[in-house]
């Protein structure tokens, strides 16, 4: 990466959506959420709850700047998204998005997938890239599958590789799409522990705390990890507050997201 992005003022929100209308990528006529107003400050850990097929992935794609909102605007550290200019790429790479299932490139092995952003952006020596990839593989418990192709690896492990690929670029804001969907209890606990550690400062990130936004179809597992909650219900985005505010919510849409 050629330039270093300037350090933002702590007063500047990491992510801000103002009157944003989020639509579905596959069908731009379909409104996922209208007039979204959302401010994420540094160090916060958000969980956005929504039932399955409510548009959680589209919401995160818009929040990450991969898809423009139909109306309104999205800002990342004070810069309006999407960012296309080459000069602002280092800035843009501070925002990481982990897709549900990892969405790895099927022509590359797990280790090559993790190394790809480093090889593409960072002018590192190959030995340094290998060293960083080994570190990430170990942290994700992926070492035995390092040279496997994504099609040979279970979805739960692919998703961890997707997380490693994003962490390779040392983001400041991490958006994670439905990390607990379809996981067994062992993987579920691993993800809860890992994301909590990342939000507090994991050694793999040099102890630097990350700002996190996660989507989920059930808010219960996140009650001890997340600091802020929101939900997507009936094409509206609602900020719920902390866990005490969530459990106090009488709305049926929110109660559905609290079922064990």
């Amino acid at each position: 990466m050629s330039t270093t992005p300037p350090v933002p003022s702590p007063a500047v929100p990491v992510l801000e959506m103002r009157h944003a209308t989020v639509t579905a990528m596959r069908n731009p006529e379909w409104v996922v959420a209208a007039h979204v107003n959302w401010v994420v400050h540094p160090g916060e850990f958000w969980v956005v709850g929504a039932p399955q097929r409510a548009g959680k992935s589209d919401f995160l794609m818009t929040a990450s700047g991969l898809m423009p909102p139909r109306d309104g605007a999205v800002w990342f550290r004070g810069e309006r998204l999407p960012i296309f200019e080459e000069e602002q790429l280092p800035w843009r790479l501070k925002l990481g998005l982990v897709f549900a299932g990892g969405q790895l490139l099927h022509s590359l092995s797990v280790a090559e997938n993790i190394a790809l952003p480093l090889r593409y952006h960072a002018h590192w020596a190959e030995a340094d890239i290998q060293s960083r990839v080994t570190q990430l593989l170990e942290a994700m418990e992926l070492t035995p599958w390092a040279h496997w192709m994504p099609a040979q690896v279970a979805r739960s492990w692919s998703q961890r590789a997707g997380l490693a690929r994003v962490l390779a670029l040392a983001p400041e804001l991490l958006l994670v799409d439905s990390p607990l969907a379809g996981l067994d209890i062992r993987h579920t606990w691993w993800w809860l522990d890992m994301l909590t550690a990342l939000s507090r400062g994991h050694e793999i990130m040099g102890g630097k705390p990350l700002t996190l936004c996660v989507t989920a179809h059930n808010l219960q597992p996140w009650r001890h990890s997340a600091s802020h909650f929101a939900c997507l219900h009936q094409r509206r985005f609602r900020v719920l507050g902390d866990w005490a505010a969530v459990v106090a919510q009488p709305a049926a849409g929110v109660r559905e997201l609290l079922r064990e």
């Binding site: 794609m61 990450s64 991969l66 897709f99 969405q103 099927h106 790809l116 952003p117 593409y120």
Partner: peptide, 25 residues
């Protein structure tokens, strides 16, 4: 077939997410 699969399986978006230009790649 390869690119259609990449498109259908979301590989284009995952490249964009890590700042890799899909046309370049």
């Amino acid at each position: 077939v390869e690119l259609g699969m990449a498109r259908a399986l979301g590989e284009v978006e995952s490249l964009e997410a890590v700042g890799v230009d899909p046309v370049h790649y």
